[in-house]
Nucleic acid binder design. Structure first.
Lengths: 136, 136
DNA sequence: AGCATAGTGTTATATTATAACATAAAATAT
DNA sequence: ATATTTTATGTTATAATATAACACTATGCT
């Protein structure tokens, strides 16, 4: 058991369950329509849960897509230091877990010598399966 | 004169002029209301110009803010390889121009050995002036 | 028990972005 | 120089994303 694992509220659980049930990132209104049978009725309820889950590091927001995906590490240490690869062809998103990269970025200082508290990094390219298809 | 400097259309010029006239990133509807006296009437006209300007590397989109800012290098070589710092306190955004960082990221390969065509990187933290204020 | 904090439910509305269609201007090829 | 293609424009309507504001409820402290 992890100290950081604050117990989730009802709506937070519902939203997280749905996100975790999807390999691909999901959109807020898709979450909404899928949890409506379970008692969530309106956008603010979804967005509030999303905000908290992001804070807790349970999920991440893919900024360039306005979509949300479960964190691939069981308990994210650095909710605001995260990297994704996004396929320009099929929109597949995967989380990049490369400790060297993370260290490089968290240690990075700007020209004023200022370190940053976090970052969001999205790589774009063609994923392996799309590349295969193009070759055929 | 630069070969890459395709001449801009009327709407593209209007939109770019307004963005360049602002130190801070601007929002699409703020652009719209500011160019309305100059003959642009509706959102699609703004968004179309924005799309083209991004393609050309004249401007960048700050994904986490849905805002747009002029590229700080006169003629951006890598429109989709860009880094910003964003102040969590005052929302100030500045473009980070660090060739080492750029090279590191463009050379980065994921666990499959796949290189990426581009990336978007946003650092978050407290900017220098906000830090000063907090100390006082 | 009393209080503070966090979460819920709801309505309405703000903000961001695109679809779809008709037309016009510009660039390129023959 | 004109036909063709590509790019841009103008317009209306609407889709998609996100938050404000308010009343109320549950939970965790001390």
């Amino acid at each position: 058991m992890n100290k950081k694992n604050k117990s989730l509220s009802k709506n937070q659980k519902l939203v997280l369950d749905f996100i975790q049930g999807n390999k691909k990132p999901v959109k807020a209104y898709s979450i909404l329509s899928n949890v409506q049978k379970k008692g969530i009725n309106a956008p603010p309820q979804v967005y509030r849960a999303l905000d908290k889950l992001i804070e807790m590091g349970k999920i991440h927001k893919i900024e360039s897509q306005n979509s949300f995906v479960a964190c691939s590490t069981s308990d994210c240490e650095t909710p605001h230091a995260i990297a994704f690869s996004i396929c320009n062809n099929c929109d597949e998103v995967s989380e990049i877990n490369d400790s060297k990269l993370f260290k490089y970025l968290l240690d990075f200082r700007d020209s004023n010598g200022v370190k940053f508290a976090g970052y969001n990094l999205e790589f774009f390219g063609i994923c392996k399966s799309c590349e295969q298809i193009q070759k055929v």
